[in-house]
C-alpha cells in the first residue's frame, strides 16, 4: 500500500505549499512564492505517481480498475484535478496569489481522505454496476468540473477581499491580489470551463446510466443535485452573458454554486440513492 503512504505525505506537502504561498503574500518575498510553486509541483508529481501506482496495484491484486471507485479515491482525484488546474492557471497568469486560496481546498480534501476514520484507503473490487468504460470519462469530466468551480470559489473570495483594498491602506496581502477586473474575468472563465465539464459529466453519466440502470435519467438524488448545480451555473452564465452581471454578484452566485457542488459531492450521501458506492 505504498500509494496510500505517498498520498498521506502529499497532504503535508500541500499544507507546506499553502503556508509558503501565505508567507509570500504576507511578507511580499517572491522567494517564498517560488518555493511554494515548487512544493505544489512536487505534491502534484508525487500524487500522480501514487495514483498510477494504485492503478497498477489494483491489477496486481487481480481486481484491476481505474482508481476512481470510492470516496477515498474520488477525494484523491478531486485534489489532483484542483491542483492540476491551479498549476495551469498559475503558469498562464504568472500570479501566485490564487495559490493561497486554492491549496487549502486541496489540503482539506486530502486530509479528509487520509485521516477520516470512516474512509477506507483499501483498494476494493468494483461492484458490477461500476464495471464500465464510462467510469473513467464520467469521473474525469465531473471532477474537472468540480475543480474549476472550486477555483471559481477561491477567485470569488479573492474578489470580495480585494474590495477592501484602498490605495491609502498599506496592506501588502490585499495589494498583491490582482485587480478585480482580472479576477472577475478569470472567475468567469473558470465557471465556463466548469459548466462545460459538468455538462459533459452529466451527459456521460446519463449515457452510462442508460446502459447500467436502464434509464438515462431516473431522478436519483445525485443526478438531481448535479442538475440543480447545472441550473444554478446556467442562470449565472445567462445573467452575465445577457444581463451583464459582473463582479460582486457573480462572486456571491459562485458561492451558492460551489455549495451546490459540495452537496452534490458529499451531501447526497446522506440521501438514499443509486450512487451509494460513492460513500
Amino acid at each position: 500500500m505504498i500509494n496510500s503512504i505517498i498520498l498521506s505525505y502529499t497532504t503535508f506537502i500541500y499544507f507546506a505549499a499553502f503556508f509558503l504561498y501565505l508567507l509570500c503574500m504576507v511578507m511580499g518575498r517572491t522567494g517564498f512564492g517560488r518555493l511554494a510553486t515548487l512544493a505544489t509541483l512536487v505534491g502534484l508529481i508525487a500524487q500522480s505517481l501514487a495514483i498510477v501506482l494504485r492503478w497498477i496495484e489494483s491489477y496486481q491484486l487481480g481486481i484491476g480498475h481505474a482508481p476512481f471507485s470510492n470516496l477515498y479515491e474520488s477525494l484523491i482525484f478531486f485534489t489532483w484535478t484542483i491542483i492540476f488546474l491551479y498549476m495551469i492557471v498559475e503558469w498562464r497568469t504568472k500570479n501566485r496569489t490564487l495559490g493561497t486560496f486554492v491549496t487549502p481546498l486541496a489540503f482539506l480534501a486530502m486530509a479528509y481522505a487520509s485521516f477520516s476514520p470512516g474512509i477506507s484507503s483499501k483498494i476494493q473490487p468494483l461492484v458490477p454496476a461500476l464495471k464500465s468504460n464510462w467510469l473513467i470519462s464520467h469521473v474525469i469530466t465531473c471532477f474537472f468540473g468540480y475543480a474549476a468551480f472550486g477555483l471559481s470559489f477561491a477567485l470569488s473570495i479573492m474578489y470580495l477581499l480585494k474590495q477592501r483594498d484602498t490605495p491609502e491602506k498599506k496592506n501588502l496581502f490585499l495589494r498583491l491580489i490582482p485587480e478585480q477586473s482580472i479576477l472577475d474575468e478569470l472567475n468567469y472563465q473558470m465557471i465556463v470551463i466548469g459548466f462545460l465539464m459538468l455538462t459533459l459529466g452529466i451527459i456521460t453519466g446519463s449515457v452510462w446510466a442508460h446502459s447500467a440502470w436502464g434509464s438515462y435519467w431516473s431522478w436519483d438524488p445525485k443526478e438531481t443535485w448535479s442538475l440543480i448545480t447545472w441550473l444554478i451555473y446556467a442562470s449565472m452564465i445567462h445573467s452575465r452573458m445577457v444581463r451583464g452581471w459582473k463582479g460582486r454578484k457573480i462572486a456571491y452566485l459562485s458561492f451558492i454554486g460551489f455549495c451546490c457542488v459540495l452537496f452534490t459531492y458529499f451531501g447526497v450521501n446522506y440521501l438514499a440513492g443509486l450512487h451509494s458506492y460513492a460513500k
Binding site: 438524488p221 438531481t224 443535485w225 441550473l231 444554478i232 445567462h238 445573467s239 444581463r243 447526497v268 440521501l271
Partner: peptide, 21 residues
C-alpha cells in the same frame, strides 16, 4: 425576457431540491 429564464432556472432548481428532501 432573460429575467424569466433566470427565474425559471432558479425555481426549477429549488423544486428539484424539494424533490430530493
Amino acid at each position: 425576457s432573460v429575467k424569466l429564464t433566470v427565474a425559471l432556472l432558479i425555481i426549477l432548481a429549488m423544486a428539484s431540491v424539494v424533490g430530493t428532501l
